[in-house]
Amino acid sequence: MTEPQTPETKPRVPLATILTVFALILVLAAVWKWSPMLLMAFGAILIAIALRGGGALLHRWLGIGLKTGIMITALVAILAGAAVIAYAGPAISTQFRELMRSLPQAWEQVTNWLNNSSAGQFIERQMANAQQNAGARPSAQSLPSVFGYVTGTISTVFGKIANLALMITVAIFLALDAQTYRGGGLRLVPLSYRTRAAEICDEIGRALGRWMAGQALDMAVVALATFLGLWLLGVPLALVLGIIAGLTNIIPVVGPFISGVPAVLFALTQGVDLAVYVAILYIVIQQLEGNLLMPLIQRFAADLPPAMTVLAILAFGSLFGFSGVILATPLLLVSIILVKRVYVEDVLGDRKDD
């Protein structure tokens, strides 16, 4: 039998391990404390990648310098945004206010249907039983939380214009001198790992660039298809509803519901038949987007597991709010690459092909 260890023979935890754990705790605390700033920085990096992509295209097509191409890309994007705001902004603002005014009327029609139809009364009883402890009942004066979420989201977006301008400014600087910032970050990595870190960094940049290109195409197609479909159906607010559908499509799974529910309720104010047609339109567009367009885009961009995407939305949304929901997919993409390259391949030594 082995002798029991005395206090003098017990293994001691190395000082380096203690310092490493302490440093890791400090880093995690700093990340949590500065998460809004870090999310802004991540958004600026995404915009910078897009600007460099546009500059690279102009460099190849026109032979101009890369930095000149980046500045032209940024200028065109800013001017295009200003033109949309100047010429379409008043119409969109008017339509949006009309949409917000119509939603209470639409919800009142829904509650009237709940009160007057046998199926609706059954649903209402179930909702009342579920909310009995809270003492709440559906009413025309109390819209569902989804509407508060949508309006709060849009108010937040418009309330952070200054942060958006700052993020775009940082993105332009990053895009113009990306190699300097990349090199500075890599100098923080030990020499023995620096080459590997550079490879992973470049892979992340390429993956994010492909994802943004694919996502932009997907959002544009959904916005255009929704606008044309609603316009053909005679829905008055086709423009703003199409824009909302395109913008919210950046959020997988949840986005179509955020845009579809207000559209159906607004159409309900014009008639039940129109509401049914609008619901069918949104379902058809999302089915085509999910089963035809997105798989084609994912072959070029990034094929992310749907279950992990939903979990990422829930996780990053609970941690960072709406900004985390918007950036959940690219954050998941970066996390998958880091886990695969750093942990699976480098730590575990599993370098088998996917």
Score class of each variant (00 low, 15 high):
D202R: 13
G317H: 08
A56Y: 06
L208E: 05
L38V: 08
E3P: 00
M219E: 11
V264I: 12
S145F: 02
V221Y: 15
A130H: 00
A207H: 11
T68M: 07
L237A: 09
L247N: 00
E108G: 13
Q105P: 00
L247I: 07
L230R: 05
V110D: 06
L24P: 01
G135I: 01
E98K: 09
I161Q: 14
E98W: 00
D218M: 14
A171M: 08
D346A: 15
P306W: 14
P262S: 09
Q5Y: 07
T20S: 15
L228M: 08
G246M: 06
L241P: 10
P36T: 03
T329W: 04
M127E: 00
L314P: 14
W32R: 15
L327T: 05
P7N: 11
A279K: 01
E98S: 11
E8L: 11
W61P: 02
T153S: 12
V21K: 08
L188A: 13
W211I: 01
G63V: 09
E124M: 09
A48D: 07
L288I: 15
L39T: 06
L51T: 04
K352A: 14
I243H: 01
A29T: 03
H59Y: 04
R97M: 09
G89M: 00
I250G: 00
V150F: 13
G159I: 11
Q270A: 13
I172R: 05
A275D: 06
V342A: 12
A119V: 09
A267D: 07
P306Y: 14
L28K: 03
E203Y: 08
Q132F: 02
L331Q: 03
T195I: 10
A77E: 06
V157N: 02
A238R: 08
A23S: 13
S139M: 03
C201L: 15
L19Y: 11
V254C: 04
V278F: 02
L230S: 03
G65T: 08
L265E: 10
A207W: 05
V342E: 10
G63R: 11
A106G: 15
V157R: 04
I64T: 10
I336M: 12
F316P: 14
L51W: 05
L228P: 05
T2M: 06
Q179Y: 00
A106E: 05
W231I: 00
I49V: 14
P104G: 04
N291V: 12
T68G: 03
L319Q: 10
L314T: 15
A198Y: 05
G214S: 02
A216S: 15
Q286K: 14
A82R: 07
I154S: 04
L79C: 05
L57R: 14
F42L: 05
I283E: 02
T151R: 07
A302G: 00
Y343N: 13
